[in-house]
């Protein structure tokens, strides 16, 4: 299988051709090592950092920003978002606090990204 990708590791944006056979993946078109790593990972198990906001309890129209600590496998993005929009958190909160630990056993935590007093 062959896939055309654009590397997002740096602003150059190399156009990659990633080919996979049974036992190996080859990356062409990259200008540096990071392109090769990106190409391989994107082929095997694409992941993204997810950022969103979570409702603050008892405060109307007031939300706190959150993010996944590390990139999350793409197929878990929607379930995570659904979970986040259902949640409510109490103030005060501190930037860096873990909101969700090991989401669906992916090993990925969700962190609060801003401190807010009551």
């Amino acid at each position: 299988m062959e896939k055309k990708l654009i590397c997002i590791s740096c602003p150059v944006g190399c156009h990659l051709i990633v080919a996979s056979t049974r036992d190996r993946i080859t990356v062409k078109g990259n200008q540096c090592k990071r392109g090769e790593i990106y190409g391989k990972e994107e082929m095997l198990s694409p992941k993204r950092i997810v950022t969103a906001v979570v409702k603050i309890r008892k405060k109307e129209y007031c939300y706190i920003p959150v993010k996944t600590e590390k990139p999350l496998l793409k197929k878990y993005i929607k379930p995570l978002l659904k979970e986040l929009y259902r949640l409510e958190v109490d103030l005060p909160v501190k930037c860096g606090t873990v909101l969700i630990k090991n989401f669906e056993n992916t090993g990925i935590n969700v962190l609060i990204t801003r401190s807010m007093k009551n």
Binding site: V53, L81, Y85
Partner: peptide
């Protein structure tokens, strides 16, 4: 609307 899990 306001944010809701129902929209996903």
């Amino acid at each position: 609307d306001t944010l809701s899990d129902k929209n996903i």
